[in-house]
Simulated scan of single mutants.
Amino acid sequence: MISQGYGMTESAAVATRGYNTKEIHNYTSVGLLAPNTQAKVVDWVTGSSLPPGGVGELWLCTPGIMKGYLNNEEATVDENGWLHTGDIVYFDKDGYLYIVDRLKEVIKYKGFQIAPADLELVLMSHPDVVDAAVTAASDEEAGEIPVAFVVRKNGSTLSKASLINFVAAKVAPYKKVRKVVYMKSIPRTPVGKIIRRELKNLLPSRL
């Protein structure tokens, strides 16, 4: 039986655990909160706590939370004991936690916040797209714009303009992809995580 969990060194490892059985299972979530663990999802712009389904930054509070980082007071636990994880998440109505993205990867377009993972899901829903990753490119007018790196199916003639229009039809106007770069493969770690820094290194020469 497959089971997932979520944790950080700063939280003394486990914060959530999957409780999957033959009768009850949820393989897309990282599980339910571990005993003695408190959590809330916070809008990273307003600082407001969000209800189930709301996407924001995960804050944790447990007996095992660290006191702070050595020689780095700005990146420590807040005065109320909450660890700001930097992970973008949401809880469903049953208390299951879902990881969406990392806060540091959020694209800031004209004051709006765009999670790359949201656009990657839309791109991957196109029948001609094998793999996709999104990152930010600097823009004088907007601050940052979303750029999609895409691997097409062999033999596909999908144009960049068609793919941009495909995404635009499924997201809010501010979220739409502004540029597309076709690649043979997306740089990933051995466990499949997108290496966005490598994509950013390609931006000046590919756009």
Rank of each mutant, 00 (worst) to 15 (best):
G5N: 12
G7I: 07
M8R: 12
S11D: 03
V14E: 07
Y19M: 12
Y19W: 14
Y19I: 11
N20F: 08
T21A: 04
K22F: 14
I24L: 12
H25N: 14
N26V: 11
N26L: 10
S29R: 03
V30C: 04
L32R: 09
L33F: 10
N36E: 12
T37H: 14
V41D: 04
S48L: 13
S49M: 04
P51F: 00
P52D: 01
G53N: 03
V55M: 09
L58T: 00
L58A: 06
L60P: 08
L60C: 05
C61G: 01
C61T: 11
T62C: 13
T62G: 12
K67H: 13
G68E: 03
G68K: 08
Y69G: 01
N72E: 08
N72H: 09
A75K: 06
E79T: 09
N80M: 06
W82Y: 10
W82C: 07
W82E: 02
L83I: 08
L83K: 09
H84E: 03
T85K: 04
G86N: 00
D87T: 00
F91Q: 00
K93G: 00
K93D: 15
D94K: 15
Y96V: 04
I99W: 07
D101Q: 04
D101T: 07
E105N: 15
E105R: 14
V106D: 01
I107N: 02
G111M: 03
F112C: 02
F112P: 00
Q113A: 14
Q113N: 15
Q113W: 12
I114Y: 02
A115M: 11
P116D: 01
P116H: 09
D118P: 02
D118G: 08
L119I: 01
E120V: 06
L121Q: 12
S125H: 02
S125Y: 04
H126T: 06
P127Y: 12
D128Q: 10
D128S: 11
D128N: 12
V129R: 11
V130I: 13
V130H: 01
A132P: 04
V134D: 01
V134E: 04
T135F: 13
A137C: 10
A137F: 10
A137V: 12
A137Y: 04
D139Y: 05
E140G: 14
A142P: 06
A142L: 08
G143S: 08
G143Q: 08
I145M: 05
A148M: 01
V150G: 07
V151S: 10
K153H: 03
N154F: 05
G155S: 00
S156M: 09
L158H: 08
A161V: 13
S162G: 11
L163D: 00
L163Y: 10
I164M: 15
I164A: 08
I164G: 08
I164D: 07
F166I: 03
F166E: 02
K170Y: 01
V171C: 02
A172R: 03
A172I: 02
K175M: 03
K175V: 04
K176P: 01
K176A: 07
V177F: 00
R178V: 15
V180M: 02
V181H: 13
Y182D: 06
K184C: 07
S185H: 15
S185V: 14
I186R: 11
T189N: 01
P190I: 07
G192V: 12
G192E: 09
K193P: 07
K193S: 05
K193W: 10
I194K: 06
R197L: 13
R197A: 14
E198Q: 15
E198M: 15
L202M: 15
L203W: 10
P204A: 07
S205Y: 15
